[in-house]
Amino acid sequence: MASPAILKTVLFLRVFSLLALAASVVLMGLNNFTDFDGFKIRFFDLIAYRYVFAAGAIGFLYTLIQIPFALYNVVTEKRWIRNGFLQQFDFYGDKTMAFLLASGVGVGFGVSFEFKRLSGDDLSSKSKKFLDMGNISTGLLLVGFVSMALLSIISSNRRSSSSPIKGFFK
């Protein structure tokens, strides 16, 4: 059984991750501008930004599903489903989400920096603002990734300490 401090840390990290991912998705969803020709450019026009948006949205939904389980675990100090399924779900889900968010961070920063580097001083102020908003959204995705990576470490630790299987390192 995990200590109450660890349970509260898990809940805090899940809520923190949820807020960071929600902010990332909202900022990316609102990221658009109208060019000097009247052409409207949205985040959806760049495949990389679509991926950042999708990674944030999937991470948000996963975290939203996990919060009631974490809250129940903090309040009762027991698992909602006690057959070991939730430990497995936490273990594999946290790792999968961390890798998805990490790849979204790489894609988001990569495309923004490459567009700025290739364009040099030719970018308009609206284009720079568009790419800067993409960077801010990706930065929030990075915050969500870091908290998800910490959750992944905690779920690994919690799984290994309560596992009935004795391995080489036990």
Score class of each variant (00 low, 15 high):
T138N: 01
S152I: 06
F39V: 10
I81N: 02
S3A: 13
F53P: 01
V10K: 09
S127Y: 07
D37A: 11
A22T: 13
R117V: 14
L64G: 12
A57Q: 01
L118Y: 10
S119V: 00
M133V: 14
G59M: 05
G38E: 03
F60P: 02
Q88C: 02
G29V: 11
K78E: 14
T9A: 13
D121M: 13
G56N: 06
R159H: 11
F36C: 00
F85V: 12
G110S: 13
D94I: 04
Y72E: 04
L150Q: 10
L101V: 05
F113Y: 13
L13F: 13
F85Q: 07
I81Q: 03
Q66T: 11
Y51W: 12
N73E: 13
F44T: 12
M148R: 05
F169Y: 13
G108N: 03
A20M: 10
F99H: 04
A55Y: 03
I58H: 00
S124Y: 09
F89M: 14
K78F: 09
N73R: 06
F44D: 05
G144A: 10
W80G: 04
N73P: 06
P164R: 06
N157P: 03
F69I: 10
A98E: 01
N157S: 14
N135P: 06
D121Q: 13
A48N: 10
F12N: 07
S119I: 05
A149N: 04
S103R: 05
V143T: 13
G144F: 09
D121K: 14
Y92F: 15
I154S: 01
Y92W: 15
I81D: 01
F53I: 03
F39G: 01
L118H: 10
N73S: 12
S163G: 10
